[in-house]
Amino acid sequence: MSHDFSRQMTGHVPVLRLGDVLLVTLQGDLDDSTAQQLQQDIGEAIVDSGVTGVVIDISGVEIVDSFLGRVLAEIAANASLLAARTVVAGMRPAVAITLVELGLTLPGLRTALTTEAALELLSGQQPVTRAGGSGRERR
């Protein structure tokens, strides 16, 4: 039952536009074709609407594997080629620990605690938590 439900949810991931930002909310499992479709959708949406940022909310993702890690990294790389910045928001502690244990520290990916923080980060009001944590000049 629940499996069917999650499948339904990921059959097509909605890509919402909020001003200058695209908002993508991932939930449950992500399979190959959906991930492919999502990358394509995001790419087209960036080109069509000329947004400068993409926020991927993964607070609904409880289980993570190396595949999802790679998809996130690929989306970020795609977006940066199209001159948009990607922020991953709302990662759960268990997911973060799993990714680190898998050795996927996702360098080059910006992160934020919540979607709100991610939007602030993209609008440039708040300092950026950079990939690798070393990007900032040291005092």
Binding site: A89, V95, A96, V100, T111, A131
Partner: peptide, 13 residues
Amino acid sequence: KTVAAARLMGAEC
């Protein structure tokens, strides 16, 4: 590892 995990969650360590 701890630093990397905190960064993934959007916090700076």
